[in-house]
Design a protein around this nucleic acid. Sequence first.
DNA 1: AAGCCAGTCAACCGCAGGGGT
DNA 2: GACCCCTGCGGTTGACTGGCT
Length: 269
Amino acid sequence: MGRAPCCDRAAVNRGPWSPEEDDALRDYMQRHGNTGSWITLPAKAGLKRCGKSCRLRWLNYLRPDIRHGGFTDEEDAIIYSLYSQLGSKWSLIASQLERRTDNDVKNHWNTKLKKRLVAAAAAFPAAPSSRRPPSFTPAAAHAHAHPSPLLPLPAPTVKAETYTYDDFLAPTAGLHDPFAADGSSSASAAVQDPFATEGSSSASAAVQDAFVGEGSTSASAASSGSNWSAVDNAGGFFVDFCAAGADLAVADQFLGGFYYPLDPTLSLV
DNA sequence: AAGCCAGTCAACCGCAGGGGT
DNA sequence: GACCCCTGCGGTTGACTGGCT
């Protein structure tokens, strides 16, 4: 015997909402708010809808304080970062973005962001084992802990307030590349940018795209030359960003995930 | 012009967990 | 502590749309 349905399916409308239904729900919510329960709301609002459907329609669509579509690069970066730390905790991720719903973030990830990473993973084979931290495992990338003992970064935490761009700036101190086997990584290969929206193959563009906007690290990283590789680790996405040359600070933004909110005072041992 | 296909997104479904009794 | 009800969440589906052949 299965779970009892939350409402009589034969007695309620299903599928897309009509403008009239939207008006009825919006009007009710603006007059009364949801002071009672979602289950009883449809009857009070004169709607032939399941209470859960009303809740979803209001929270994801009709609510006046939400935005749809048009995700900015900065929002993408935040989503990448939080997904790498939290996994598919869409409500938590959405709570870190202003006026976004979990459904919108989830759809954006599934339709756009994930595909970029899949494409990036396909374009780049796994980094040679000699360039990977010995302790790295795919599970570690999802264990909410930093995958490499070489990188003494704190375990990511979720801020109570909204993230800002500044949370993703790179540290200024010079860090060495923990993936480099001999410390002399080559920047000769032109590589594609897993984050690029239009398949740029420029290494400098890759870095600039990763640090969209006014990121102060983009110019130095771009000028030093960069090397991307992306690895899809058994359902968890791990982007290994290796910057060549002296300016390797940027690479550490991506270790263990995509972007880390970094403590600028940290440095490698 | 018609058919096909891929991308997008609103909506549904079922489960987990919290709170009340 | 057990049970029930309700809400919230994440996975999935399916309708719609636009581009391509």
